[in-house]
Design a protein around this nucleic acid. Structure first.
Lengths: 201, 201
DNA sequence: ACCTGAACACCGTTCAAGT
DNA sequence: ACCTGAACACCGTTCAAGT
């Protein structure tokens, strides 16, 4: 007698995401997700082949809310800026997922949707062939790196500025001090502006 | 009767690096490093407080060979390019270490040395205050992101191009095809050139 | 068909003991 | 002071069994 599935993929992903949001990525385990759903550990394997697949589900759950539709007609650099800022806003709601985003980016439908739109904008801006490849990868590199610098901050201990002072790196210490006065939003936007300016030749 | 230490921190780091180079970062464990040195697992704890400290040692071992001395006098963008390319060359010899570089960057003496030189070049180029903070973080973001895109490639399965074709992302599929013709060196250098151009206003 | 429970081969780490 | 060996609390995952 077939029993009905007690849990949907979406509910599984939501449970895993709840674990990550509460206990961090380190807290994610098959056992923790099962407990979150009130199931035994092995019941989870009814819905997912292994941990890797569970992680992929979490990434899709997060990117499900990412709007990848092309922005309204306006200068192409501004369109790209909007798309990149959308990623940051979406991912920023679940910082623990950032490392998963990096490792699962290749197979993620959400990343593909977003990339397709970005490539379309680049094409409209006259980018083709090698130039377009490099532009896309350059943008991706910045986004992935910046998100990690922002969310995988120092887990504990003194900041870079303090360390640099002690270790005798005066200029870096000074820059570290000044960094405290820069809001994360401005830092991300500022770095992005640099990339977009460089893209515009 | 005190016994002499049988292993130096450098030898410990070298053993851990050998494990990573051979079996990947997933193969790194206290037990594997102990076996590499012909010791029991717990002997490793004589030299390192925990796994985190072992990882930090590996990062320093890799960055020990990173030349962070300022390049000869020449346009500042070219000096920055040289420093960034040095990082890529050094890290490229041990791709498995890339994730450790990301998580340990704050406490790494090697990263601090490199950053101090970069900040010095930025200062000489007239960057100060918020602009310099954003320039340093922007460069770091690109480097970290690009190294990960390069080395944490798809672990298995078809590439992005194939997936995109199947999933109905025509422009992305086309770009994926073209990406095959771009050498990793050119891709990294091209992205870096974009960032440096953007930095130069 | 869905779920359970025991078990296996791994982890990092603590602790008490040996030389 | 350095090293060992057993043990604990975790992992992901396999397998045989229950309903």
């Amino acid at each position: 007698m077939p029993r009905p599935r007690s849990v949907s993929p979406a509910r599984l992903a939501a449970a895993a995401l709840a674990v990550i949001d509460r206990d961090g990525l380190a807290g994610l385990s098959m056992r923790a997700v099962a407990a979150e759903l009130g199931l035994t550990t092995m019941a989870v394997y009814r819905y997912v082949a292994d941990r890797d697949e569970l992680e992929a589900l979490v990434v899709e759950e997060v990117l499900r809310t990412l709007d990848s539709t092309p922005p309204a007609a306006q200068p192409w650099a501004e369109q790209l800026r909007i798309l990149v800022e959308r990623v940051r806003a979406t991912v920023g709601r679940h910082p623990g997922v950032v490392p998963l985003l990096v490792s699962h980016r290749h197979r993620s439908a959400g990343v593909l949707r977003w990339s397709e739109t970005v490539v379309g904008i680049l094409h409209g801006a006259g980018f083709d062939g090698t130039r377009r490849v490099i532009a896309l990868r350059g943008l991706l590199s910045y986004v992935i790196g910046a998100l990690q610098l922002e969310h995988l901050g120092p887990l504990a201990g003194p900041g870079t500025a303090t360390i640099a002072t002690l270790a005798g790196f005066p200029r870096l210490a000074e820059t570290g001090q000044e960094a405290g006065a820069v809001a994360p939003d401005d830092e991300f936007a500022g770095g992005l502006a640099i990339v977009l300016r460089g893209l515009a030749r």
